[in-house]
Design a protein around this nucleic acid. Structure first.
Length: 229
DNA sequence: GCGGAGATGTACT
DNA sequence: GTACATCTCCGCA
């Protein structure tokens, strides 16, 4: 069971990291969402992706592109960048120290408020289908946003470490330390025409966690063989 | 469990 | 007009 007193809110200096380091640092941390009615939703971050900007063709800020829409990628580390994709879904990113770089949160392992997450997910379904398994509530970037009611309107440009913001933040948890899990790195999901950047290992996930959206079994095998000795 | 089709809005060519 | 950092549904195994 998760006890509040064991959790500490992450501060600006905790998130003041370059993109790849931040993506790894965020694994095992807890994303907390407080709704208007006071309901608390929590989930452990189990999957992240880097979007580096500059050279990275898959990034919204490729080649220094800077628009109204991707402005949060250029804001101080820890700023939330929410954008809409496929006309229907939101994805949540967290900016890192380099201007134009951000980490996409791809999946959470639910820790608190599962029933509320189920309600949000069912509401979004055409037929109101209920999701039974908790590992299927947030196993994808847009599923995560639906389950936690994260939208561009309520979360874009908010800094996670800003103490004035009471709706969304990050926490550390002593039970989930980096030594307790192995991290698999693999190619990013849904990237197709980004040249060499299509296959770069810029996605990271916790080995063996059920809420990971897509496993890379070949990479897992290599990791396990390497760590034998 | 897996693969393909379709839904659908926005930003930028 | 086009290209999406996706998800659900449905058919088939």
């Amino acid at each position: 069971m998760l006890l509040n007193m064991n959790c500490t809110r992450l501060l600006m200096e905790d998130l003041h990291l370059p993109c790849k380091k931040q993506a790894l640092y965020l694994l095992g941390k807890v994303l907390v969402r407080k709704l208007e009615d006071g309901t608390i939703l929590k989930g452990k971050i189990v999957e992240t992706e880097c979007y580096l900007g500059g050279e990275d063709k898959a990034s919204h800020s490729f080649n220094g592109r800077r628009t109204m829409a991707n402005e949060p990628m250029y804001m101080p580390a820890g700023t939330i960048y929410v954008y809409m994709t496929y006309g229907m879904y939101y994805c949540l990113n967290i900016s890192s120290v380099e201007p134009g770089a951000a980490v996409l949160l791809r999946a959470l392992d639910p820790l608190q408020g599962e029933d509320t997450m189920r309600t949000f997910r069912a509401k979004k379904n055409k037929r109101g289908t209920q999701i039974d398994k908790s590992s299927k509530l947030c196993n994808g970037p847009s599923k995560m946003c639906i389950a936690l009611d994260i939208t561009k309107e309520n979360s874009n440009k908010i800094n996670l470490s800003d103490p004035k913001n009471e709706s969304i933040w990050l926490e550390d948890h002593p039970d989930f330390s980096e030594e307790d899990f192995k991290v698999v790195s693999s190619a990013r999901i849904g990237i197709n025409n980004a040249g060499e950047w299509t296959s770069k290992p810029l996605r990271f996930y916790i080995l063996g966690n059920e809420s990971v959206s897509k496993r890379d079994k070949a990479r897992e095998r290599i990791l396990l063989e390497d760590s034998k000795d």
